[in-house]
Simulated assay, not measured.
Amino acid sequence: MNCARRSCNLFQSDDGRQAMDGTEHLAVRREGATLILTLNRPEARNALSLSMLVGLYDGWLAADADDAIRSVVLTGAGGAFCAGMDLKALAGKGMAGERHRDRLKADPDLHWKAMLRHHRPRKPVIAAVEGPCVAGGTEILQGTDIRVAGASATFGLFEVRRGLFPIGGSTVRLQRQIPRTHALEMLLTGRSYSAAEARDIGLVGRVVPDGTALDEALALAEQINACGPLAVEAVKASVYETAEMTEADGLAAELARGWPVFDTDDAKEGARAFAEKRPPVYRRA
């Protein structure tokens, strides 16, 4: 994995698990085949900072570049997921992480890639939400694939209440992910939603007891990690690729994406393992 000029140097953690350097506001570690990215600015309820955005983008790139990583879990530290943009910074008081300003100059699109607006990781991304996941937090959430929330988690797009626009993609994505009437209610009222409401409208898939969202997300990741990685990545790509196609075009695209998977050694290994009643050993081949 080439992480030149980035903060994702691999090292071994004390317990023998691989981990990676992040930034002061983004913690990164490996647990088996899962990369865990933790928004780590709990004193500000993990409000977005430049350091956090740089760390996030580097994490997405690291996951895509390392074939040993089969899934990514995104979570937050200190009982919060993400409270969105740092409004003090927006008011002109400076965004935390100014030392990373050169990265943003070199790639003016970096913050949108970090927030999954202009970048889609090829590995499945599971969100583990505790506490507030609002404004930019809810916008990042829409770029994830599977979503687990603690019972006391809260969601919402508060931008209109501040005279702002949810420019992280919500006016486009939200209506494609939940019914339009719910999307417009969330966007136009700027009100807060409970985890149960978020589940009921389809914004999250599971609600679990407080403090267990990460464990649940890691359990889901383990199930994904046990599957054929080439198949998993092809399925994810097909779902997004065909989302806005006609049924006929989508089915044709599915065949083009899916047939090559059957020709892989991994597909043969899956059939062999089933016949031999043993776990498969996939080699991405």
Results as ranks from 00 to 15, higher is better:
L26I: 09
A27L: 15
V28T: 15
V28N: 12
R29C: 06
R29T: 13
R29E: 11
R30V: 07
E31A: 13
G32A: 05
G32C: 09
G32L: 05
L35C: 10
L35R: 12
L35Q: 13
I36P: 09
L37Y: 12
T38I: 07
N40K: 07
N40W: 11
A44L: 15
L48I: 12
S49P: 02
S49H: 06
S51Y: 02
M52R: 01
M52H: 00
L53H: 00
L53W: 00
G55L: 04
G55H: 07
G55Y: 03
G55W: 08
G55N: 01
L56G: 03
Y57E: 12
Y57G: 03
Y57N: 09
D58L: 03
D58S: 13
D58K: 09
D58N: 15
G59S: 01
W60A: 02
L61F: 11
L61C: 07
A62Y: 12
A63I: 09
D64V: 14
D64Q: 09
D64R: 06
D64F: 10
A65I: 00
A65G: 12
A65S: 14
D67Y: 10
A68C: 05
I69M: 14
R70W: 13
S71E: 15
S71V: 06
S71P: 15
V72F: 06
V73P: 08
V73A: 11
V73R: 09
G76H: 04
A77P: 06
A77M: 04
G78R: 02
G79Q: 08
G79L: 01
A80C: 11
A80D: 04
F81P: 05
F81Y: 08
F81A: 01
F81H: 04
C82S: 08
C82N: 08
A83L: 09
G84V: 03
G84I: 04
M85N: 05
M85F: 06
L87G: 00
L87S: 05
A89C: 01
L90R: 03
L90T: 00
L90P: 00
L90I: 00
A91S: 05
A91G: 04
G92Y: 01
G94V: 05
M95N: 02
G97R: 00
G97N: 00
E98Q: 07
H100L: 09
R101P: 00
R101S: 15
D102R: 07
K105D: 14
K105E: 07
K105Y: 12
D107N: 10
D107W: 04
D107V: 05
P108N: 13
P108R: 14
P108K: 10
D109M: 13
L110T: 09
L110C: 07
H111S: 15
W112I: 10
K113H: 06
K113R: 15
A114H: 04
M115G: 02
M115Y: 05
